[in-house]
Design a binder for these strands. Sequence first.
DNA 1: CAAAATAATTAAACACTGTTTAATAAAATC
DNA 2: GATTTTATTAAACAGTGTTTAATTATTTTG
Lengths: 200, 200
Amino acid sequence: MARRNDHSREELHEMALSAAQILLDEQGVTALSTRKVAAAIGYSVGSLYQLFKNLDDLCWQLNARTLEQFQAEVNAIPAEQPREIILGYGRAYLEFAHRWPHRWHLLFEHKSQASEIPDELQGKIAGMFEYLEGALAQLFPGAEADSLQRSARTLWAAVHGIAVLASLDKLFLNQPALEQQMLNEVIGRYLNGWQQENMA
Amino acid sequence: MARRNDHSREELHEMALSAAQILLDEQGVTALSTRKVAAAIGYSVGSLYQLFKNLDDLCWQLNARTLEQFQAEVNAIPAEQPREIILGYGRAYLEFAHRWPHRWHLLFEHKSQASEIPDELQGKIAGMFEYLEGALAQLFPGAEADSLQRSARTLWAAVHGIAVLASLDKLFLNQPALEQQMLNEVIGRYLNGWQQENMA
DNA sequence: CAAAATAATTAAACACTGTTTAATAAAATC
DNA sequence: GATTTTATTAAACAGTGTTTAATTATTTTG
């Protein structure tokens, strides 16, 4: 039943990733299994292992796609004032986590942490930090590189924390537009507090 | 081979939870299986299902223990100035996540979210928010209840975000005492920024 | 062009997982 | 002491990731 020329290696690779993404979107991280992906593309599990080192490898590649997609959305944000850039980034982050809950979940699954992060992905993440660092550098021209790098991560951690707890339903608070308000407040107050330091 | 009077139901329950906790601490979330817990206490899996509804139930009870332990540590923080209380809470949180990485990981495993959060646990979490809200209320006597509740969650989310990304090794930055600095800055700047709002 | 080498594909197996079931052994009740 | 209730277990079911050996298709070689 082998049929090598039905699809090239590249086509198969693409088919598998697409099928996996659909499975992920529709049924969540736990439904993402080698057998289901194989069945979805009409091949056996063994053939999947010809295309991917293992399931973790497939997940990393899925994560790379997710990051590319998010990065494209972030790049589409009009570059206005630095504060608006940072806020826009946070909004995009929260919105993305809501729109693609399972893709976003897979990004931070501890399981994937078992194997080491591929260099390619690490580069993508670093690029996104630089985006934030650039906006912060505009706001704080006198700040040291260390400080800017740390602050970019701190702001990202804060936004990420909001997204995590919201997705886990662990905020236990019914307020209208809760996440949006939390986002506005944490970024606004953080930046104001920092500016205040520089004036004293 | 049944031996009903070797251990009472309560003893068995305690033995199972303790064994599960050791397994969790030593081998991580993925190693926490019904068969391993059963083997550790010298009973069959079936007997475990007499004590717990399922593995998720066992995990919830493990999480309840973890929260109790953390709450005890938080309560041991000397009640000083409100800012020190909030900072102390954040420090305790980061420290706890480092000292008990797997217990802390289990707390936020999405898997456990499949079944609903037991009321008991929900109450424990609410209690911890109140702790933060109390300190914030001292700093901002004029603030509305809504605002205090939201801010407590925002600060928690920020600290949680730092802990998550640090535990996932996703900060990609080698700075001495990075997490501590991020913590100090996010709390300090947030509170300063808020105070600034009230003066304007 | 046919034969040999290579590579892809698959079915089956292995070692796990959570959970359920039927049979058995022990304790409690009558 | 006989009967009912309960605890316990081994076995089974349906999954999982991954590996293996055998088969089939394609390429390369003679």
